[in-house]
Design a binder for these strands. Structure first.
Lengths: 263, 263
DNA sequence: TGGTTATTCCCACATTATGGGAGAATGCTA
DNA sequence: TAGCATTCTCCCATAATGTGGGAATAACCA
């Protein structure tokens, strides 16, 4: 029965079980069992068995009849992560003042997991006023950011240990080139070294034409390893009008204060 | 090789895989592979295989060498749940005004998943001033609440369809008795009917001696099924001094407004 | 109360996880 | 840079465990 298996990350029940989580998206936050069968090519028995296992773990929960949504365990585990994340705790203490210092701006803390940059905290308004309208920004906790694009990611990337960057380069050369970070290893190295020298990354109009972002790394005091990045997002016109030195100094001070509170 | 299997929810690789998530707690937010071996009785190969599968799914991420923490997927999935949860979206719109109406109070939205009540949103200060000191309340998103205790849970429980309550009674008679909800089925039914008649639940000094909680159900407009509960937490002395009718009316209006925004 | 759909149960089969150790890769220290 | 100590992956014969098809329940709706 290996006629077709449309989208599977691997073989074996262990990996197939977790493939079910991929089916949950913003467009389809509740999933039917027969959708699991159809999309992943499982039989009815297997689909139910897997769904039951995930339900028992609390990762899924029955919604309407025949439908399942993500479960309470997700929310609990996220709470656990929030409570246990030193970076987040430190940021929560430091960010309010930082955010308030510049009106019409929001501040993000981002963090690297394996090879994924994620926004772990956002402070400030949910929208930025620019060009006469409010630009809603969904860049809240949990938003995955492209690893090789955007100020927040680059600030982290530039401060990663060489061997980590080397590994990423070998594995994802295409993406790195496409993102304009350099076509070969020396070019990438130089680009990241330049960012390190500057101590910050600025992008204007990258994600949204009307927005600007300024990002600095958060470096652990003792060993200088990067633990995340601190990013301020503003309306692009306002950013052009502001004193960049002062903005940068503020942000750096925020990053230092955050780092100082880490264990 | 079935000498001992200290703490396992079931047999079979499918369930054992997810048992690893149980090891992550506030006390031990990062877990070593040899801890997995020791606590769950897996061999080195199996422990690594499982951990790898969870890492590939993003539910775990390598932390320090040999250690793993919960992974970015958790945060992403929680974001997905937040974006997709109509109750939460409605609550976010309604709660700010409600919270501001009574100083030194916080408002919670709780929801039922299968047989678990969870706080899905909190609005208001992180601490309540009572008896001259600030009582920090960790009752934020993700906190699991006991199903048969507390205003927030009871408000939901009382409005559950009979067959659901019946099932819970049969499965968890002990807990229900211990919580003082009644020793037999008629007693429980009457107790819940009384709550339904009142339309609200009040508890004073249940979780914390100095706090009071007032909770009302959030009922879907069309079919009156309960989708969650809205709870205000205050300092107990202040609660005694306030006009309960007005408090209750406010909260009911909030619940109605929330329900009105549901799809 | 019936009719419909969702879910669990069952069991022979063979696919798939298992575990022990060897070996590679990684990270740390001198 | 070399050397050491861990962490981690790979390999493969074995049998344990998941698999699937359908039948039997259970849950739900009118």
């Amino acid at each position: 029965m290996e006629e077709e298996r449309p989208a599977a990350s691997g073989t074996g029940s262990i990996t197939r079980l977790l493939d079910i989580l991929d089916l949950f998206t913003i467009e389809a936050p509740v999933v039917r069992v027969d959708t699991v069968q159809a999309r992943l090519g499982y039989t009815k028995s297997t689909a139910y068995r897997y769904v039951k296992a995930l339900c028992d773990a609390g990762l899924l929960a029955p919604a309407a009849a025949g439908s399942y949504s993500l479960g309470p365990r997700i929310v609990e585990l996220d709470r656990l992560m929030r409570l246990a994340d030193p970076l987040l705790r430190a940021g929560e203490a430091v960010l309010p003042a930082l955010t308030a210092a510049v009106p019409n701006s929001m501040v993000l803390i981002c963090s690297l997991y394996r090879d994924k940059v994620l926004c772990v905290h956002r402070e400030g308004p949910e929208a930025i006023a620019a060009e006469g309208r409010a630009i809603r920004i969904l860049r809240a906790r949990g938003l995955p950011l492209p690893l090789f694009q955007g100020a927040a990611s680059l600030a982290i990337l530039a401060h990663l240990p060489q061997h980590r960057v080397r590994g990423l380069f070998l594995a994802r050369r295409q993406e790195i080139g496409a993102a304009g970070l350099g076509e070969d290893w020396p070019a990438l190295r130089m680009r990241l070294a330049a960012i390190r020298r500057d101590g910050h990354v600025t992008t204007i109009g990258r994600f949204n034409r009307h927005l600007a972002a300024l990002s600095v790394p958060i470096l652990a005091r003792e060993d200088d390893r990067v633990v995340g990045s601190l990013t301020r997002i503003m309306a692009a016109p306002e950013f052009r009008g502001l004193a960049h030195d002062a903005l940068l100094a503020e942000l750096r001070a925020g990053a230092a204060a955050t780092a100082a509170m880490l264990p």
